[in-house]
Amino acid sequence: MTNFQPRSHSSNTAILETKPIIVARDVEKWYDNGFHVLKGVSSTINQGEVVVLMGPSGSGKSTFIRTFNGLEPYQKGRIEIDGTLIAHNQKGIELLRREVGMVFQQFNLFPHLTVLKNITLGPTHLRGLSKPQAKANAMQLLAKVGIAHQANKYPGQLSGGQQQRVAIARALAMQPKVMLFDEPTSALDPEMVREVLDVMRSLAESGMTMVCVTHEVGFAREVADRIIFLADGTLVADTTPDEFFNNPKEERLQKFLAQILH
């Protein structure tokens, strides 16, 4: 249904150029109420990789990926995006955030702007693109996610699946180096999950580096290069989808799989 640029290199081949793009080392975070939500999580995500993040509810998945673009501050350890340290209250954090696109569970489209404006707002204000240029790019992206004909509608007039595809287009319009997805299909009616997953799948095929929190087993099996399993703020497993589903070693993971796969 959708086509992004063809992948320049396949992540399945051994000759993958392994340039690390997200490096998280011993990340620890406490919430203001003292809750120790991340207890030293380390992971490296390479360019072009598609990583799925799984774990029980409350294990810290959202918190973890939100530290990648500075939406959540962390207290210990370090996180680098393409070689640049992400730190709390840091000057120029906005510049870093432009490199990291995020898609939220609740879409978070700006309700006072049309679909087209939602997408062009960032590029015109923050990337310095001219309006016609930004508009042309936006229309291209909308065509790719399959909703070019809805460009002048307001988010409230679209279905959940359509809104989420607009949200993906909005994040892509900033030409990020990495895309983060936090349960992008959890708020959708079942019949709309497919259309969003299809967009994510072709995005993965185009070579985008992606970190996805999702409970979609099919997507994780077929699209992910790696699956990271978080439980109680600790990284329990980091392995291939095949190992993850067919040969889980950790007891915590086995329990989790028993629950979600029934």
Partner: peptide
Amino acid sequence: PAYEEAARDLGAS
């Protein structure tokens, strides 16, 4: 606050 988060993620000051 989700709308602000979206704006912030896009890199807005």
